[in-house]
Design a protein around this nucleic acid. Structure first.
Lengths: 316, 316
DNA sequence: ATGCTTTACGTCTAGCGTAATGATT
DNA sequence: AATCATTACGCTAGACGTAAAGCAT
C-alpha cells in the first residue's frame, strides 16, 4: 500500500520543482526524499518524474497521477476535518426547504428524525416550490428534483428519481389504459401550473432527446399534492415523481402508466451554499438525508418499475 | 499524516465486525491491529469504533469517516491502476462523437492533438447531434452539452457552458438591441429544428426556474453552425452555446445579447460506456479533453460576460 | 470455555540523517 | 562553484510478534 507522505512529497516536488525543497518542507533530508519518491514509483511500477540534476519534469504517467493525488489528498483532508472537534455536533437552527409532496412524505420526517438525534439542534422546515429566496430566508438546505437551477449554490445529487404518468386503478378501469403516448390526448390529464412558469409540460426522454408530450390539460392546479390526491380519487392521469407516488403505488391507490416509454429524469438534489467550511448541521444533515433516501431508492424506483443497478456516477 | 493501512484496517474491521479478523486479512497480529486502530483514532482525535470484547460498533464519527474512507481507498486504487502497465498508452481506434459547432471548433482539433501524442492510436470523429447510436456505431466518447440524456452511460461534466442570445453588430445596429426578453418578439429569431424534436425552444433560467421564451421563429434550420453563420451574416438573433460563439465574439462578428438575464445552463459532458475497466484510450482522452477545455473555460465564459469563479462541484 | 481487545515486553527491521559522489547549470 | 539527485553507511526509533490479562458471550 502506498504511503500518503510519499504522495504528499510527490505533489510538493511537482509544485516546487525540486525534490530537496519538497523534502525540506516535510522535514526530510534530500536523501530520504529521493528514496521515498523512488519507492513510490516502484510501488506504482511507473516513473513519475524525469529528473536531471537541475530540473524535474512530469512524465505522462506522473501528470495523470498528480491530478489524482491532488484530489485524494484533498479528500483526506476533508475527511479528517469532517470528524474533527465540534464537526459532529449539529447546533443552531437547521432551515430546510423542500417541495410539497417530497417534503411531506420524505424530507420532513427524515429531518425530524435527524433533529431527534441532535438535541442542540432546532429545526425549521419550509414547504415551498421556489428556491429563489434561499439567501433571503436563510435556508440552509433546499431539496429539489430535476435539473438544478443555475446559481452560485452547490448542488449535490442525493438519489435518482423519475417523473412518470400515473392514475388510479378505478380511472384506468373506466377509461382504459393508454398503450402509447399518442393515446394521452383522449385522456383527462391533471397538469401543474405555477405562477410565472405557466403550465408545466410533460417531458419524456426519447431516443432523440427530451420531448414534450402533445397533450391538453383538462384540469390544472398549482399544488403538487392536491394533484396527486385528484389522481388517487380517479380524476385523471398525473405526471408525478416516483418518490411522490411510491406509497400510493404500493398501497394500490395509483398505478404507473407507460413507465417504460414515458418518463422524465428528475433526480433529487440538495442545494446548499458553497461556503468552504460548511456548518456541521448542514453537512451532517445532507449526509444523513442521502443515506436514508438511498436506502429507499431501490424500493421507490421499483414501485414504478424503474429499478435498475445504480451506475457509479461522479462529476468533478 | 494518516497511514493508509490504518485506514484499510479500519474499513475492514467495520465490514468484518472484528478487529482481529481485519488484522488477519492484512497479515497483522491482533495486538498490532489494536494498536494501529488506536493510533488512527488518536491522529483524528476522535473515537471511531466503540469496542467491547465481542462486538464492534461504529460511533457517529466513525460512520461518517467510514463513508469517506471507502471513497478515498477506491480513488487510490483507481489512481494506481490508471498509471499502471499499458494504461497510459492509447491504442486502437478512438471513436469520438461531437455536435456540429462544438466538434468543429473544439473537440475535433483537441482530439487531433491527442492523436498526435499517441502514435498507436487511430482517430475517428463523427460530427452528429444524435447520441442514440453510440453502441451501434461503436462510439467511445460522445461530447454533448445540456442535460445528459438518461441512459446506462456514464456522464462526466467537463466544463461549464451556457446558451445565450447573440447577434451580429450590424443586425443590432439596424434593428436595435433588445433590452428585455419581451422585446424578442419584435426580432428575427433564428431557431433550430431537428427531426423528431420539432423546434428547439429558447429556455432561460429565471428566479422561479427554467422558462421557455415566448418567441416566434422567423427562420429555422437544422444545422447549428449554419445558424451561427446566418447570425454572423446579420440575419437575426441566435441562441447559441458560449463555446460555439466565443471565437466569433472575440473577433467582433457576434455580440451577446441579454446575457445577464437570458441564459440556459448547458454544461458540456463526456458520455461514455460504463464499463468497469475503461480502455486507456477513452480514459486518457477524456482526461486530456477536460484539461484542455478547462484551460479555456474562463476565456470562453468571459467572452459572453459569464465568467465567474469555478465553484467546486462534486456529485456522488 | 471460547474468542475477542488490550497491555507489556523483547526483538529487529525499516527508515532516518550524515556524508560522500556524480551530474548539471 | 553551487546546487541538485543519488548512493553508502551506521544508528535508532518504531513497528512487529509473542504472551498474558481482562471481558463478554
Amino acid at each position: 500500500m502506498i504511503d500518503l507522505e510519499d504522495m504528499q512529497l510527490f505533489v510538493r516536488a511537482v509544485s516546487d520543482g525540486s525534490l530537496s525543497a519538497a523534502g525540506r518542507e516535510l522535514g526530510l533530508s534530500p536523501a530520504v526524499a529521493s528514496k521515498r519518491l523512488t519507492r513510490l514509483e516502484q510501488t506504482l511500477g511507473v516513473r513519475l518524474l524525469q529528473r536531471s540534476s537541475r530540473r524535474l519534469a512530469l512524465t505522462d504517467e506522473g501528470s495523470v497521477y498528480y491530478e489524482r493525488c491532488m484530489g485524494i489528498l484533498g479528500d483526506i483532508d476533508e475527511a479528517n476535518t469532517a470528524v474533527g472537534a465540534g464537526q459532529m455536533e449539529a447546533r443552531g437552527t437547521l432551515h430546510v426547504s423542500a417541495p410539497l409532496d417530497l417534503g411531506r412524505q420524505w424530507i420532513g420526517p427524515i429531518a425530524a428524525d435527524f433533529a431527534a438525534q441532535h438535541p442542540k439542534l432546532r429545526l425549521r422546515i419550509s414547504i415551498s416550490d421556489t428556491t429563489l429566496d434561499m439567501f433571503e430566508h436563510g435556508v440552509d438546505v433546499a431539496v429539489r428534483s430535476g435539473t438544478p437551477a443555475d446559481s452560485q449554490l452547490i448542488s449535490r445529487q442525493l438519489v435518482r428519481n423519475y417523473r412518470v404518468i400515473c392514475a388510479a386503478p378505478a380511472y384506468l378501469a373506466r377509461h382504459g389504459c393508454p398503450s402509447h403516448t399518442d393515446d394521452l390526448q383522449q385522456h383527462t390529464c391533471l397538469m401543474l401550473h405555477r405562477p410565472g412558469r405557466g403550465i408545466l409540460p410533460w417531458i419524456v426522454q426519447t431516443a432523440t432527446g427530451p420531448r414534450s408530450l402533445p397533450i391538453s390539460a383538462t384540469i390544472t392546479c398549482d399544488s403538487g399534492d392536491l394533484m396527486r390526491e385528484l389522481a388517487v380519487a380517479g380524476h385523471g392521469l398525473a405526471f408525478k415523481s416516483a418518490w411522490d407516488i411510491a406509497a400510493d403505488v404500493r398501497a394500490g391507490r395509483l398505478l404507473p402508466v407507460l413507465a417504460d416509454t414515458a418518463r422524465e429524469q428528475a433526480h433529487i438534489h440538495a442545494i446548499y451554499p458553497s461556503r468552504r467550511f460548511l456548518p456541521a448541521r448542514i453537512r451532517l444533515f445532507i449526509d444523513y438525508l442521502q443515506k436514508v433516501l438511498q436506502s429507499h431508492e431501490h424500493d421507490v424506483l421499483d414501485s414504478v418499475r424503474l429499478a435498475q443497478g445504480s451506475p457509479k456516477q461522479k462529476q468533478g
